[in-house]
Amino acid sequence: MTPDERYQVQLENIFEGPMDLLVHLIKKHEVDIYDIPIALITEQYLEYLEWMKAMNIDVAGEFLVLASTLTQIKSRMLLPAHEDEDEDEDPRLEIIRPLEEYLRIKSAAEKLAKRDLLGEDTFVRYPGQEDYLLNREEAVIDVGLFELIDAFQKILENITPIGRMEINADTITVRDRIVQIVDIFETKGSVTFNELFSKNADKSEVVVTFLAILEMVRLSLIRVAQHTQTGIIRLFYL
């Protein structure tokens, strides 16, 4: 193998992960995945890791995990098999099973990519506006962070300041609140911004709800839009 070939291989495989490197080696040596020459493959695998290090590429921890698995299998293969333990598994199964599964997924991914993809190979009469068309005109505008903060301030102002801040033992976390809000969306589809804040909510609850909304926007779980006429902010479940 010329150094050039090696270099190319590195670039193609390096960022894809340890399983890809293993597949690449098995393919290159045209070996049967059910009868992997473990010593050869392990040696080659480790050699690649050295190459990656030499090229100043960060060898991710995942690569090392597989390296140690391979080395372990290799040493177990060297141990003499006891005759009375004929039900002993081939140590290589530990790597064959995940390998099989990975190859199946790889093949599935390739098949998916070959389909007539919407927005790539095939189009509909009304492409989802935000997905395909660059300029669109709608009755609603997407709301930015600042509008949301404004709306949030209004809600904070409306909180009745009775009893000041109470230390509440069972305040809910942002994560739990997201789950609750998802439930609301599952039944309603869309709600107004104000609906999510109950009238008698205390400050911490309001803050948690607001943070939950922000997080959901970030995770693209919901879309926030404001009606141009009424100014009502509505949240849509995606």
């Binding site: 393919k27 045209e30 790889k106 390739e110 070959k114």
Partner: peptide, 10 residues
């Protein structure tokens, strides 16, 4: 394996 994993896809 040679067929199961081609290197490129669209």
């Amino acid at each position: 394996l040679g067929e199961a994993s081609s290197e490129h896809m669209g």
